[in-house]
Design a protein around this nucleic acid. Structure first.
Length: 317
DNA sequence: TATTACGTCGTG
DNA sequence: CACGACGTAATA
């Protein structure tokens, strides 16, 4: 699944939390999404309506209240299926990454692997099933790659430099899909800050992971920690519930800056020595994998979900 | 089967 | 420690 922040604000400029960047909304970060608590959301709305009286004028008080009071996942408890047609929504601008959602030792098959973009592999087949066309005139251009080649560039920086074409012509307001690759949401109105978890079309039957499946995976892990009364700070094996689990390769977290980088730098030792080194680009090496096994981020991830004010986890399920 | 990249080990 | 080489798990 993917986290998609829907920045939709009827008849008014976007709220402060999501500045308008129609050319490329960029990556807001899972952490940014998840830590958009109800309180922050309320504050965002309040500030917005307070500071932009002109924009807020058309909004009656009842509408404002109703809008702020809208839960983050308004339809989630009605059905396990995604209530909005965002199946091919893109967030990272690449195929879904095999990220560590369920824990470092909890292997899930069927999740698509990342499609690393190597600037030296121009002839390599690039899947077109993602929502953002990865054509030569898109963000895979040598220019974009070169721009991202700077060493201490964050993933977000890298994404922001990518050439995401506007989803609507300049001057128009995007009322439908906010990201360039997101199809219009039709008549469905979602409050700003909504996090939509979607599945992706990744080939026929290639993924057995559904939106609800993944959501429940996260929910169950978090809930288990909560119900067991543990601090969720145990070892990965403990998190997995089996200390005797055979040692497996850890997977990249998918959310740290290096993980969010899309391209190999091409100049680091790992890139230059790829044939024999078998190592990922130094600037794409997951921060979590650099650490010794045992101190993992998914602890914080699930902790955030579990203890988030406003019950985001509840809505996510 | 080919590719990617994690884990480990030897070396300096 | 960093680095390179290698085995090999995971995936396309």
């Amino acid at each position: 699944f993917r986290f998609v922040v829907v920045d939709e604000h009827l008849g008014s400029p976007p709220p402060p939390l999501f500045p308008p960047q129609d050319h490329c909304r960029g990556w807001l970060g899972i952490s940014a999404c998840l830590f958009l608590t109800q309180m922050e959301r309320y504050r965002s709305f309040a500030t917005f309506y307070k500071n932009s009286t002109a924009a807020a004028a058309p909004f009656p008080q009842t509408a404002k209240i109703a809008r702020i009071a809208t839960p983050l996942f308004p339809s989630a408890r009605l059905s396990a299926m995604p209530p909005w047609p965002c199946d091919n929504a893109m967030l990272w601008g690449r195929k879904p990454a095999t990220v560590n959602v369920n824990g470092p030792h909890t292997h899930r098959t069927g999740m698509s692997r990342a499609e690393p973009v190597n600037v030296h592999m121009s002839g390599k087949h690039i899947p077109q099933d993602s929502a953002l066309p990865m054509g030569a005139d898109n963000f895979l251009s040598p220019l974009a790659a070169e721009q991202c080649r700077g060493l201490p560039v964050t993933g977000a920086d890298c994404m922001n430099r990518l050439k995401c074409p506007p989803s609507v012509p300049p001057g128009e307001v995007d009322r439908g899909g906010t990201f360039g690759g997101i199809p219009p949401l039709g008549g469905l109105s979602l409050p700003p800050g909504v996090i939509v978890m979607t599945t992706l079309h990744s080939g026929a039957g290639s993924s057995g992971v559904t939106m609800s499946d993944s959501a429940f995976q996260i929910a169950n892990v978090a809930a288990d920690c909560q119900h067991s009364g543990s601090s969720c700070s145990g070892s990965p094996a403990a998190l997995n519930g089996n200390a005797n689990t055979a040692k497996r390769k850890r997977k990249r977290c998918g959310v740290c800056a290096p993980c969010r980088r899309l391209i190999n730098c091409g100049v680091c030792s790992s890139c230059r020595n790829r044939k024999t080194g078998h190592q990922i680009c130094k600037f794409r090496k997951c921060e979590e994998l650099k650490k010794k096994p045992g101190s993992t981020m998914e602890v914080g991830f699930t902790h955030a979900l579990t203890h988030m004010p406003g019950g985001l986890l509840k809505w996510a399920v």
